[in-house]
Design a protein around this nucleic acid. Structure first.
Lengths: 197, 197
DNA sequence: CCGCAATTACCGAATGGTCGGTAGGTCATG
DNA sequence: CATGACCTACCGACCATTCGGTAATTGCGG
């Protein structure tokens, strides 16, 4: 038998990327280990040699995607200063990566189901993301937002807009200008309220 | 054999309601006809006697849910005048109906998948809803929204916020005040822009 | 009101398939 | 010779759907 590629690690990553694709195309429940294996030229059991179960495979896929996303977010603002423009840039970046967006949309919604293996991941992720986003907003816009909103209210709205736009964009990419609409929402948050500056 | 309940129609509706529950709990792919049948006291084949296939069952479930939602939206504004407050009331109503919200969240995200039987339903639904919502916004707020937004931009943002909040709320009902946050977003849209009134 | 045919409402069994996962092996590499 | 990287061969469970019944009900001619 031919030892195909380099290290164990690179083989694992190859499988993770294929799994991300398949999860995007069929969801977690609809995806089969065999279909992931086929895409990477292995048997179903070959995949299970690297990942002990479908659940664990999903867990590692999510973790990988999160790390990559963090790279996109953190790299531009090198001093650690992440701004709302950086977030808008991430939305723009996502508009080029349909598969990634689709996997995230499908999996996060699916995770809402009781006992879903990704449920804890997403619950924790949203919790920490909201807290972090509230601080980004506060740092850039202060405590006084239009219509008396607090940064703690704006943060969940921000993610709601991102997620909701992704859904509509995935269904009708030609009708929905995702980055433009997200920037429109941002300008709503940035608007001066009682008097113009 | 005992003819259990009344008419064929009422039996069908009984099945549709059970199917809505199961779809909410497991998604479309994860749901089995047998589990729906069990919930209504039939065999799998009993269900297929009323609905020719799983796809058709899903289609009728979605149609039924849509009709009910329309009732909630249209009944209060009897003169045909639906306002943004009516929409906010719908969000409040939804916060009492977790199962319905969950089915909608899971199924709409799942529908993004290629060849999903609900894909056309949701694509069309969002398209017509956006057009309709843009008119509601224009009728109430005029063409001049804060930060130079148009009603055509605000409409998809509105549904994005609704959907996105539902996802976060389903994952953490205690942390997310869905109706409150939605009203906060609405007040953002209603805010007077250059000078206070 | 009776008897009988047609219809409805199911169920049992089976089809052909896929699922995740396990056991046990083979073979090339180090 | 030991190890890791696979494979074949299974397992039991579940999947949607079809077929062929059968029991209960309805409608109808008399």
């Amino acid at each position: 038998m031919v030892r195909r590629r380099g290290s164990r690690e690179s083989r694992r990553e190859e499988i993770l990327l294929a799994a991300l694709d398949v999860f995007a195309e069929r969801g977690y429940t609809g995806a089969s280990i065999a279909s992931i294996a086929e895409r990477v030229g292995l048997s179903q059991q070959g995949v299970l040699h690297y990942f002990p179960s479908k659940d664990r495979l999903l867990a590692e896929v999510l973790q990988l995607r999160d790390e990559r996303n963090l790279d996109v977010l953190v790299l531009p603002g090198e001093g650690g200063a992440i701004t709302l423009d950086t977030v808008a840039a991430l939305v723009e970046y996502n508009a080029q990566r349909r598969g990634i967006v689709q996997s995230f949309t499908v999996l996060s919604a699916e995770s809402v189901i009781e006992d879903h293996p990704a449920r804890d991941f997403f619950k924790e992720r949203y919790g920490t993301s909201r807290a972090w986003m509230a601080e980004v907003i506060r740092a850039e816009l202060g405590d006084e937002l239009p219509a008396g909103l607090t940064p703690e209210q704006a943060a969940p709205l921000m993610f709601a807009v991102m997620d909701g736009l992704q859904l509509q964009w995935l269904l009708a990419p030609d009708e929905i200008d995702m980055p433009g609409l997200f920037r429109a929402f941002l300008s709503l948050l940035k608007a001066r309220h009682p008097v113009s500056e």
